[in-house]
Design a protein around this nucleic acid. Structure first.
Lengths: 122, 122
DNA sequence: TTTATATTTAGCTTATTAGCTAAATAGATT
DNA sequence: AATCTATTTAGCTAATAAGCTAAATATAAA
């Protein structure tokens, strides 16, 4: 379960153009990674990619992309698995499902007229 | 329709603890506003509130809250209607519905195995 | 055991953000 | 017209974020 701090961290991570592009393309399989074919399909999904493959799509230095990926990982938006000396990056679908549900609940309850008492801790 | 810049702006706005609390409570009716009762119900919804009522819930100065509200408004997360010398703040449900749908589509298509070509412009 | 590949860490600079107080604006009330 | 209420704007400071290069680490390949 994501608490308020988790959610704020997720939105902060997605509230930057570079990270948003990385996020979107990791989820929709936008980054081709030539090394993928040599990896066992059971462990690593087709959408997986690695740090340098992502960096190839941007004009920023590799360490800059590496730090953006760390922020996406810390926000539980992606996962990173080390296999040999490469890191395979995958979307964290569980987190996105939970965020999707938060927004759906928010709009559904709004339309149903549900009104809560004020709570500054959530 | 929200384009990429719109979405990044929305996430940036929600990626700050103070603005996230304001957002959440505006949508769930958390802020009581004593002036609401004297307003016509047709124009202004029950969840509506005003700048100073929101500021009462925080230890920050009023101009600070005002600027946070401006950012939420610029991101189309809330709307602000001026009635006499007060500003009524309401959730922008259309935006939240669209964001909800984005996340739902993202997770649904991921599970269905839909893979797109890389596109750095969206 | 040297070299190559993949990635992270450290340390720096510049830009942006979040807070503040004081002053300005807009409208309502006396 | 003077004053009160609600809100924004301006201008400042301090903290955070985003970029860079150089160096470090970890593993693979020669």
């Amino acid at each position: 379960m994501l608490d308020m701090d988790d959610k704020v961290k997720i939105f902060k991570a997605l509230g930057n153009e570079t990270r948003f592009k990385i996020f979107k393309n990791i989820f929709t399989g936008g980054y081709a990674c030539s090394i993928d074919n040599s990896q066992p399909k059971d462990d690593i999904i087709a959408q997986a990619t690695c740090v340098s493959s992502i960096a190839d799509h941007f004009d920023f230095a590799l360490p800059t992309i590496s730090r953006h990926l760390k922020e996406l990982k810390d926000a539980k938006i992606i996962t990173m698995k080390k296999v040999k000396n490469k890191i395979y990056i995958e979307p964290n679908i569980a987190t996105m499902k939970e965020i999707a549900e938060c927004f759906t609940t928010l709009t559904d309850e709004f339309e149903a007229g549900v009104v809560y008492q004020y709570d500054n801790t959530k």
